[in-house]
Design a protein around this nucleic acid. Structure first.
Lengths: 101, 101
DNA sequence: TGGAAACATTGTAATATCTCTATATCGCTG
DNA sequence: CAGCGATATAGAGATATTACAATGTTTCCA
């Protein structure tokens, strides 16, 4: 442990936090969270139909959020159900919308 | 007002929220917040010395956060003091660090 | 087994971000 | 007013994101 006046957050923690926030910082991904706030679980089809975007785009963003650990997946036959994995995501969303958090 | 199954957040609100979150999603900017959490107000010099980055880099990021309305500025002679303008920023930070928000 | 539905992945071009370096502006003081 | 310290801005090159179109893969079922 060096004697640096380093921040409260460790190197790695900062990087991780930044990744998560940046991941949330996209209109479509925010809307996906919005959808997930109401429907616990959604399929890719439900998402791209609800948000009116290309299938590939929805899949990409869902995968991105899954990579970051924000969402989790569950396969059932031909469907893939996505849902919130990290509750902080919703908290953050709530926090930004209203100031009450 | 159309009859679309639009999300809870309006178009503009989503865009804005995304911008703010993306703005927070950068290691250096998170550290700046970290510094501001302890020193209500800081000058550019204090920031770039504390975080050990180029003066221009610190200035740029501070300006970016100012643009987004996250920080506010106050000029005093030759110094510019930056401080939190949008408390949600700290809340979000807190929210991501610990789950308690 | 062939095909359709549901997802994922890949390649690519456009755009946005970041860092770095250099330069410009502003305010103070000798 | 010359000069210095504190900030801001501009431009360029490197890297990262994003949307889109096309193609793969998996699963189910007739």
């Amino acid at each position: 442990m060096t004697t640096k006046t380093r921040a409260i957050l460790g190197e790695q923690a900062v990087e991780d936090t930044a990744h998560v926030l940046r991941c949330l910082g996209h209109p479509l991904r925010l809307r996906i969270l919005d959808v997930l706030e109401q429907s616990r679980e959604v399929t890719v089809t439900e998402v791209y139909e609800a948000l009116q975007v290309e299938q590939a785009v929805a899949s990409q963003h869902l995968t991105t959020m899954w990579d970051k650990g924000i969402l989790k997946r569950r396969k059932d036959g031909v469907h893939v159900y996505y849902s919130i994995a990290d509750e902080r995501a919703l908290k953050v969303l709530d926090c930004v919308r209203n100031a009450n958090c």
